[in-house]
Amino acid sequence: MSRSRMPRIAACLAAVGGVTVALVPGSGQAAQGTPTVRVVAEGLNSPRGVTVLGDGTVLVAEAGTGGRGPCTKSTGASETRKCFGNTGSIYRVRGKHQGRVVRNLPSISDPAGREAAGPVDVVVSGDGYLVLSGAALNSAKRAQFGAQARRMGTLYHVGGRWHGSVIADLVEHETRLNPDGVLPPTGPGKEPLHSNPWRFVAAGGDWLVTDAGANDLIRTARGGPAHTELVFPHSELRARGSRAPELAESVPTGIVRGPDGAYYVGELGGRKPGAARIWRIVPGHRPQVFVSGMTSLTDLALDGRGGLVALSMGEAAGSGGAAKPGALYRIDLKTRARSEIPTGGRLRMATGMGIGREGEIYVANNGIGNGAGQLVRVEP
């Protein structure tokens, strides 16, 4: 591993934001036909993970807008002032009814909401919810935001019997163990050691959590310590005519359990075109790269027909150019063939997705900015 770390995923989102352009096909076969993309909900605050329940209800984790403080100035490359507040929430769409069903969850953000951290994923748990919080923090930095910020970077219960209880503290795990052994750089504008949980999935009686800040996969269970399941290595890119490979950090994001019992994990890949991979992981066996050559994956989902769907955030803007929009890809789990699902170039800073009973795809769109977020429905 290198001696530097990938900046927090929210900063990556901010870096490619703000411009809408025509859809640019990916390296796979471009899909044909006229897309049906409909806005289901608007005014969301940094939407992240999307969960579709069996009855068609859709849940969206909103990272929030931070608050009045405590505030600190980040020590990373952006040097941004950020403040804590209980503005994270869970947004629910059930038939014709929609709105926030859970409020007052911990959130940290800059004033514009371009680097918000807070709820990033949610599932129903008994008569409450199980919420995963992003962070982009280490333990010392989290403490600067006060006692109310203690659930930042944790997997915790909201509502029901276990309300307020924390299953796993991913920030503490990364700060104490630093599983990948990367030494954080020092000096002005450098990114410190940090954890930034992104997605989680059930694994028997445990949970598997991807940590986009720590580049690892963590296994955790109630009442037991967190365990490092896997550290993701860099991907190597070779430019034409170059002998030395260019390295891109993994930054693991989406995770699903496939119909074959294996777990599939996508990567942001350092925002570099073609650097993102999808891993196939069978516990007890060496992980394998399942698909490579993709770009900036933020989530994965199963389509219910034996296929895998990958969400790409798009490419960052080049020098003087415009950012490319996000995209959806369907991947055959048997042949690994990839085809693009048409979206008409309407996905921008797409941060999460879920798939409904009829194959409809719900995407958290415009994932940065206070009140700029959307939930859109794509009919493939």
Results as ranks from 00 to 15, higher is better:
Gly241Cys: 02
Leu302Gly: 12
Ala214Val: 01
Gly254Cys: 14
Gly306Pro: 10
Leu328His: 12
Pro273Trp: 01
Thr295Phe: 13
Phe200His: 11
Arg336His: 06
Arg277Gln: 12
Ile341Asn: 13
Leu300Val: 13
Arg238Glu: 06
Arg238Gly: 03
Asp332Pro: 08
Asp211Tyr: 00
Ile255Pro: 05
Gly321Glu: 11
Thr295Arg: 07
Ala322Lys: 10
Gly293Cys: 08
Ala323Gly: 13
Gly318Val: 01
Leu268Gln: 08
Trp207Leu: 10
Leu230Glu: 03
Val201Arg: 14
His227Thr: 14
Gly320Gln: 05
Asp332Gly: 09
Gly224Phe: 01
Ala275Asp: 07
Arg338Tyr: 07
Thr298Pro: 04
Ala322Ser: 13
Thr210Pro: 06
Ala322Thr: 05
Pro283His: 10
Thr210Ala: 07
Arg305Lys: 15
Lys334Tyr: 04
Ile218His: 03
Pro225Val: 09
Ala212Val: 10
Leu230Trp: 03
Asp299Arg: 11
Ala275Tyr: 01
Leu208Cys: 03
Ser339Leu: 09
Pro245Ala: 00
Thr220His: 07
Thr228Ile: 00
Thr343Cys: 06
Glu229Cys: 01
Ile255Lys: 02
Leu302Glu: 10
Met313Trp: 09
Ala244Ser: 08
Ala276Cys: 04
Ala214Gly: 15
Phe200Cys: 01
Pro287Phe: 04
His234Gly: 05
Gly284Ile: 00
Gly266Trp: 06
Pro342Phe: 08
Gly223Ala: 06
Pro252Ser: 10
Pro342Gly: 13
Lys272Thr: 12
Gly223Lys: 05
Ala327Thr: 09
Gly318Asn: 00
Gly270Glu: 10
Pro245Trp: 00
Ser250Arg: 02
Val265Arg: 11
Ala310Leu: 15
Ser242Phe: 02
Leu328Gln: 13
Leu333Gly: 07
Gly261Trp: 06
Pro245His: 00
Gly293Ala: 02
Trp279Pro: 08
Arg277Phe: 06
Gly204Val: 08
Arg305Met: 12
Pro252Ile: 08
Val282Gly: 05
Glu246Lys: 01
Leu300Thr: 09
Glu340Tyr: 12
Pro287Trp: 02
Arg199Gln: 15
Ala337Gln: 15
Arg286Thr: 12
Gly293Met: 04
Asn215Ile: 01
Arg240Asp: 04
